[in-house]
């Protein structure tokens, strides 16, 4: 009796989340899958739209560039975030929270605004080029390059790398590090044998949280490259926005679907690296 009542009230508590997931996650997903395989006009099943992704050079190239840039951005973020998170986690609690706020602060501002402001820094007569001219180095083209796109990705998503790594690091208690020293570890061995294994699940989370939005972004590439670098996200946006009726919705859905499968595969592979019982799984 009690048990049944318990499950009922628990069910009631869960209801809002279940409804939310249904309306905003599951049903849209079903639509994406549906439009990937069923023609909008005729309603017939077709593999044509999914095939485009692998056959049409424009799409293959866009996907290749997206993958390359997001991997580079993820790698750079990791290189910056890892030592930063470590040193942050070893500071006094008070200065830890201050620095944490400093990291979070830009995220309180709209991402579009932040990205747009970078263009004024990087453009031909922007801040950096003005400074360079002062020392006699001619204007350098920065905006519109792949480098600028990667910069935009790193800048926007770096906090998502720092946060999970920092959380993992701050769980490594001082006694564990002292135990490592006590047992003969110098600084490097301590890093290799204790800190790295114990922060691995945070690193995996960070990689996924930077890689996924980077590979599917469209706004960053549009602003930072003036439309010169076309990522897969740009193509999806373009198809849906400009060619809605002429099969664009189908192509957009199919690309989203394939991209989603690839991301799922990547995260699945990444998660193999962590312990199953560490609780660091994203999927």
């Amino acid at each position: 009796m009690n048990n049944r009542k318990g499950t009922f009230s628990r069910g009631l508590l869960n209801a809002p989340y279940v409804i939310w997931s249904l309306v905003f996650i599951l049903i849209p997903l079903v639509f994406v899958v549906y439009y990937s395989f069923f023609d909008l006009e005729s309603g017939r099943f077709t593999l044509e739209y999914v095939k485009i992704f692998f056959t049409k050079p424009m799409y293959v190239k866009a996907f290749g560039i997206s993958l390359l840039y997001s991997l580079i951005a993820t790698a750079i973020s990791l290189v910056i975030a890892y030592p930063f998170a470590y040193f942050l986690s070893r500071k006094k609690p008070a200065s830890q929270s201050v620095q944490m706020i400093l990291i979070m602060l830009p995220m309180w501002m709209n991402m579009l605004v932040r990205t747009y402001s970078w263009t004024t820094i990087l453009e031909g007569n922007g801040l950096i080029n003005n400074l360079l001219e002062l020392v006699g180095i001619g204007p350098v083209t920065m905006l519109g390059t792949g480098g600028a796109v990667v910069l935009g990705m790193v800048y926007n998503y770096l906090p998502y790398m720092i946060l999970p790594i920092y959380t993992g690091m701050s769980k490594i208690g001082q006694p564990l590090l002292e135990a490592a020293e006590d047992l003969g570890c110098n600084g490097f061995q301590k890093l290799k044998r204790v800190i790295m294994p114990l922060s691995l699940s945070g690193v995996i989370s960070g990689i996924i949280m930077v890689f996924v939005p980077s590979i599917s972004t469209f706004y960053i590439s549009q602003k930072m490259s003036n439309g010169k670098v076309v990522l897969i996200g740009d193509l999806i946006e373009q198809q849906i926005k400009e060619f809605w009726a002429a099969g664009g919705l189908n192509r957009g859905a199919a690309m989203s679907f394939v991209l989603m499968l690839i991301i799922l595969l990547c995260t699945f592979v990444m998660n193999r690296f962590t312990d199953d019982d560490e609780g660091g799984m994203i999927i």
């Binding site: 208690g173 006694p175 564990l176 002292e178 135990a179 490592a180 020293e181 006590d182 047992l183 003969g184 570890c185 110098n186 204790v194 294994p197 114990l198 312990d275």
Partner: peptide, 20 residues
């Protein structure tokens, strides 16, 4: 002499065993 070079070993209050 840093701790890792001393010929002493410690048993810590909460043991500090490596969870991984």
């Amino acid at each position: 002499l840093p701790p890792h070079k001393r010929q002493v070993n410690t048993i810590f209050q909460r043991y500090a065993l490596f969870p991984h």
